[in-house]
Design a protein around this nucleic acid. Sequence first.
RNA 1: GGCCCCAUCGUCUAAUGGUCAGGACCUCGCCCUUUCACGGCGGUAAUAGGGGUUCGAAUCCCCUUGGGGUCACCA
Length: 485
Amino acid sequence: MIHESPRVRFAPSPTGYLHVGGLRTALYNYLYAKKLNGAFVLRIEDTDRTRYVEGAVENLIATLQWAGLDFDEGPIIGGDYGPYLQSERLDIYKQHAQQLIASGDAYYCFCNAERIEKVREEQKAIGIQPRYDKHCLALSKEEVQQKLDAGEPYVIRLNVRPGGVVGFDDEIREHVEFSTDVIDDQVLMKSDGFPTYHLANVVDDHLMKITMVIRGEEWLSSTPKHILLYDAFGWEKPKFAHLPLLLNADRSKLSKRQGDVAVESYREKGYLKEAILNFIALLGWHGPDDKELYTIAELIEAFSLERVSKSGAVFDLQKLAWLNQEYLKTYDPKLMIPEFRTSIEKQLHVSLEEVDDEWLIDVFIQMRERINVIDEVAIQAPYFFLPPDVYDEKSVGKNWNTEASRSVTELANRVEVMDDPSKEDYEAALRMIVSERGINAGKLIHPVRLAVSGVSGGPGLFDILYLIGKDETVERLRTAVERLG
RNA sequence: GGCCCCAUCGUCUAAUGGUCAGGACCUCGCCCUUUCACGGCGGUAAUAGGGGUUCGAAUCCCCUUGGGGUCACCA
């Protein structure tokens, strides 16, 4: 047999946004493909018309591209095995469903919802697992044809033969087995002419020559249905790798109710894609050594399914925050400026049009080791952009008094007559005053900090003074003296 | 409930029969320091329980317990 080149796919359904769990699945697929020089395919599983969301496909692709997980084949860019939107492949599914009917592996079912429901109720009442009772399997060819001709609505079901065992070797979980007795006669084609996930997925994975199915663990228990389908078609099966789930803090499946799950919302909050990718890569996978900071290139190099863990992983925001700061600290500040501008303007309602990049870069560098995400600059240090409107009470009580007030005024006087002062000039002026007055530097530093920023923490005082500039410094010092006495 | 998967510090994980059970986040302490951070150093903290197998078990087997997933004309 010819050795086929690795092909994997990410197959989300377009429900409006990309879930972080989905991003991790996409990432693992991407890493696997890149590592082995294979193809990464994007396929959109839009077979549920009731869940159709306008613009969801575009949004999904945009988010994937933002993250840098470029696919080799997929919607818009095309490829040799398209179309890549399942809603454009209906004829293919229909044809394959017919093939299964011909071979006896599937059958028409005309039961309506009421009957199905009634059967289930009865089964539950006598304590057995609710499953379709194969009622329509008993229909003769003629009866089926008659109903078809009469235009009766129908579905096509998989004909599962009880008494057997279906097993497969999962790349992550070793051998898994199921009895066919517990597998329902799954609907393959719905009455609206669309296939269900199970049929479309198997047909497409085969036709698109997928060699490795990497997906979430929630699919593990429906895999035997897929195996049955491959066997019914007589197709070679891909390998399967079922990833551990991403969990809430209480260890239930990561859900919207307990926090943000949309990749877009993390992006909006200012998390860097490098941090997000690095973080989710580590949720269920770990390299061979203690390394935790990975670039994408390094992930590709180090990744392997053998090192994927089996148990679910809690989505820990604290670790994400730490990672984001790690990237913030090493990132080229120039690249952050557009987002920085937007973040400040949006939150502080100021215009930064007149402000040049260099100044913003300096502010950013002062702040980046004090924040986890860029949006925190506006919260922690609005004083770079606006004079303080209130003064932290605790700091006032601790640092402000008549003597401090006099020293602050003195500093204002001396700064006022300076010509384009440097950071060092501010410091020299302040040190001169404390030396003349015979007081500790802190007696003046803290009041000055309070006067210009309104708070007690932040970057070095002289960096702040230099960045807000001479005029603003003088004005803020005088305003504080006026207001605080 | 049936079926399936899983089980090492609070969290993410390393250790594929022999380690003082390692690292990271968080947390605590100390140092640095004009503050807040950053950084440095150090500390607390785990093999779910019970049986086996073995000279030796976190590691292999069984049971129990716990958690999760799944049981649709949704994916």
